[in-house]
Design a protein around this nucleic acid. Structure first.
Lengths: 266, 266
DNA sequence: CAGTGGTCTAGACCACTGG
DNA sequence: CAGTGGTCTAGACCACTGC
């Protein structure tokens, strides 16, 4: 079980973790590398290594957990494929970050119809408002809060080449983001998720989107400077941190006259 | 180089493939497993193993290519992660197929707002028309044809629970799909891509989509039974077969009053 | 029970990065 | 040059499937 000297070999099925000697519901065979992955995940979540930093080398981790390098490798492979960690040959393995990541907006799939993503230069941002309020039933459900709990709401417009293109409302649970102000948001240059990492120790790892077509009404036509009733892409995104805990709900309206949402299916 | 007896070891960098002893432009280090992957890809493409069939076991492939099982394993791992092949423990590795795949519509990301995908029962299909015509400039570009080359156009409506929900125009290059008729399409029950596999030996492996919001006009409002000007999701999908050759262009219009496009970001 | 994919090890060497 | 991730091997054993 990864602690025995070189006697016969392997074994695996036994536990490295506390495990379930009692109350076994499912035999639940868990490969060693999955356990290593879980432990590494815990270290990531606990902040033992910060975003952008290197984690210990495969050899070090192998020694720490008393397993072979190959087993650590497989664990880290999975973390890398989930974008929690980035491997760099010859340098090390690094905790993924939304900052300095050559793709500035990892979760934004809106691209210009012509030209490469980012060819329009950086987006101009304008914070319309930033308030603290109580979660309505649907917001609370999306953020796994109770109705009435405190949330922050930021509304902003992103413009490309001077054309307002994205209008979004961003809901955040107030507790983890204590102290976030409109000024802080407005002054920060760089991806919002990078600010969340450095200031609030909140890492967005994964997101789900629900996309619909909706007419520009209720003032959205004014903020995006389109005619009343213009079809817009409605993108509702829930972003999750460790343990699949939702930490952000974003309701965006995208103009699709000069841009489109790009997706790849495998 | 995978052909040497157990002397010292490995080597890899040398070629299993014809390789580049001359005219070396890039040193282009190619790991052995990538070469095995390439060879396996060729076998898949040539039809040596048909969709749904098992490919040789890892041991057999290792013997065939004179490499270790682990190297074959890594090659197949990548093919599996690209959904070209499906592993089933205890049974073998199988060529992926769009038929009998528990997800009936692998590339359709429209799901009902409530209930699980497919909970509405099977979609009703209605072929509106199916014609042979000459490719316009933009269709030709998307399908990597020359303007004026023969293409097939099928227009159909998919309904869920009696509600027309999807209207799509499907363009196919005429040559590979010789003999495809409206009757064949209408009579076939099951995923269209499954029919393509069995009847025309065309496998859709990957697709890209461009999504916009557009108003229902030009008769689309009639086919989808919505008011003129209703916002619809416009989904333009290009599907690719081996070697990234485009084999289908699909322009769909989705109603999003009862359904939404669902996407996961990692 | 044999055959398949899945896990694990120990050790070797290769490719890349930086001092 | 040493250190890191990346490749490859040979061999053992485990888990799952089906006869």
């Amino acid at each position: 079980m990864a602690v025995t000297p070189p006697s016969s070999s392997t074994s695996s099925s036994a536990a490295l973790l506390p495990a379930d000697d009692f109350a076994v519901a499912t035999p639940a065979f868990s490969p060693l590398y999955q356990q290593i992955k879980g432990l590494t995940l815990q270290s990531l979540q606990s902040g033992e290594w910060k975003p952008g930093e290197a984690i210990p080398s495969e050899m070090e981790l192998a020694a720490r957990y008393r397993v072979s390098q190959g087993t650590v490798r497989k664990a880290i492979d999975e973390l890398a494929s989930e974008n929690l960690v980035v491997r760099r040959q010859g340098k090390g393995t690094f905790v993924a970050t939304h900052a300095e990541q050559h793709v500035q907006f990892r979760f934004l799939k809106l691209v210009p119809d012509s030209g490469t993503p980012g060819s329009e230069g950086p987006a101009q941002r304008e914070i319309i408002e930033c308030r603290r309020l109580r979660a309505s039933a649907d917001i609370a459900r999306a953020l796994a809060l109770r109705t009435g709990e405190a949330v922050l709401l930021a509304r902003r417009v992103l413009s490309f080449a001077g054309t307002p293109t994205i209008l979004e409302d961003i809901w955040l649970p107030a507790a983890p983001f204590k102290g976030l102000t409109a000024e802080r948001l407005a002054d920060y240059h760089g991806p919002m998720y990078a600010l969340f990492e450095t200031e609030f120790n909140v890492r967005m790892l994964r997101a789900e989107e629900k996309i619909r077509a909706e007419a520009a009404i209720d003032g959205r036509e004014l903020l995006l400077k389109v005619k009343h009733g213009t079809p817009l892409l409605s993108v509702e995104r829930t972003a999750y941190t460790y343990q699949d805990v939702p930490m952000e709900l974003r309701r965006g309206y995208y103009r699709t006259d000069t841009h489109h949402y790009h997706n790849t299916l495998n």
